[in-house]
């Protein structure tokens, strides 16, 4: 059995989704932690120091390439699986009902992922494009804290960010435990623990992220 055989098999594609998903789950912890520095009530001084470090450190910028690669793999593979799964049933049921224990969001991972992708484009435009402009094209110096304030006090962008986070919450609720199942970690002893950690993780991550726009919008942070 070759690597190609593994990665083109239905199970191999799932391993890839699970592995990249795990990586992104860990990345979100780093992302949320660094951004939470804005809550140091010093008008973003601490936050901007770390942001400057992240932007000018070669190791971090190297990791960023890996992060992009993982994102692209997860997105492309996800979209391909979605298309393949849809075409595995040529005629849809006239009526299809699901028992109560089937979570609605588990059936809409493709849609939730697409919403997150759209959000990601906006998010990169808001916060990532400017820093790269500064770095490579000698653009104006970025005060990311001020940028955040600008973005999060716009009612339209605030709403879009909240919708993005809701999509992320449900995507994580299914994705976290799903990744464990994909790698075969599912039995009566471990799965209840994995499920609880997954719910805890998803909610905490989304609350920490949501508090940022809320803090600026409500005027807690100036």
């Amino acid at each position: 059995m070759t690597w190609k055989q593994l990665l083109t098999s239905s199970l191999g594609k799932k391993y890839l989704m699970g592995a990249t998903g795990f990586f992104l789950i860990i990345y979100l912890i780093v992302h949320a932690s660094v951004n939470a520095l804005i809550f140091y009530d010093d008008n973003g001084a601490t936050f901007n120091v770390v942001a400057h470090f992240m932007l000018h450190n070669y190791f971090i910028r190297f990791l960023e390439i890996g992060l992009f690669a993982v994102f692209i793999l997860h997105i492309v593979q996800g979209l391909m699986l979605w298309k393949q799964n849809t075409s595995a049933r040529k005629i849809n049921y006239y009526r299809q009902n699901f028992p109560r224990e089937i979570k609605w969001y588990s059936r809409y991972m493709g849609w939730l992922g697409t919403f997150i992708l759209l959000f990601l484009v906006l998010h990169l435009y808001n916060f990532w494009a400017g820093t790269k402009h500064e770095l490579y094209f000698k653009g104006p110096s970025n005060d990311l804290y001020k940028e955040m304030k600008k973005v999060f006090t716009s009612p339209l962008l605030f709403t879009l960010y909240m919708l993005g986070l809701v999509s992320l919450l449900f995507h994580l609720l299914q994705g976290f435990q799903s990744a464990f199942q994909t790698f075969g970690i599912n039995n009566r002893r471990w799965i209840p623990i994995v499920r609880r950690i997954g719910i805890f993780y998803s909610i905490i991550i989304c609350i920490v992220f949501a508090l940022m726009p809320i803090a600026f919008m409500a005027g807690w942070l100036q």
Binding site: S10, L81, A88, F98, S178, T182
Partner: peptide, 10 residues
């Protein structure tokens, strides 16, 4: 030509 598992558990 079956689809891929999405861990929906239906």
């Amino acid at each position: 030509g079956f689809g891929n598992c999405g861990n929906i558990y239906n």
